[in-house]
């Protein structure tokens, strides 16, 4: 995948190198409306992955970041949500970083695991709407990812039969496709 900076450079080339500061900023992923979608920065993407990974962390199975849950979230927001809802979401995301800077003088991604949990716990109170939406997104993004579905859950693409009453085996995980 082409990195955003390379893409911007390529566009600069096409346009003859004379980009306005505003357009450069826009292409670099500041909040702008492009066909109804917010283009997000690499930094926002990294923050999103980190927040998702606090919601569903690596345990005996890989967590949300390893599963690429943030890519699902970015895609759904970009293609399925109205611009104002995208703005609300990314404003909520930015508040996570603001809270980190205020409390620890660091970006969220640079915090220790304990500090991340502290900021997220705080967010359940001070940034509740964002937290709930982010949790829902992460849950779906993770458990429908290949890692989530096949490692954290039991993936059974073609059951071949149906039994409505079967004992739950010790340690048996929930079905990845449950309906």
């Amino acid at each position: 995948m082409m990195k955003r900076r390379q893409a911007v450079e390529r566009i600069s080339l096409i346009l003859g190198g004379a980009l306005s500061p505003q357009l450069t900023a826009a292409l670099m992923g500041q909040v702008i409306n492009q066909g109804g979608s917010i283009q997000i920065t690499e930094a926002q993407e990294a923050l999103l992955a980190e927040v998702a990974d606090v919601i569903i962390p690596t345990t005996d199975t890989p967590g949300a970041k390893a599963a690429g849950a943030e890519q699902f979230i970015i895609r759904v927001l970009r293609d399925c949500y109205e611009l104002k809802d995208q703005e609300t979401f990314y404003t909520g995301l930015a508040k996570i970083d603001e809270a980190s800077q205020k409390a620890h003088g660091k970006a969220f991604v640079d915090l220790s695991p304990e500090q991340k949990i502290e900021i997220m716990t705080d967010a359940t109170k001070t940034n509740k709407a964002f937290f709930k939406q982010m949790k829902q997104f992460t849950q779906v993004g993770y458990f429908t990812s290949e890692i989530g579905a096949t490692q954290a859950l039991e993936y059974l693409p073609v059951p071949g039969k149906f039994e409505g009453d079967a004992p739950l085996q010790p340690g048996q995980k929930a079905w990845a496709i449950s309906r």
């Binding site: 059974l156 059951p159 039969k161 149906f162 409505g164 009453d165 739950l168 048996q172 079905w175």
Partner: peptide, 8 residues
Amino acid sequence: DRYYYGRR
């Protein structure tokens, strides 16, 4: 302790 197998 009861579960199921397959998707009806």
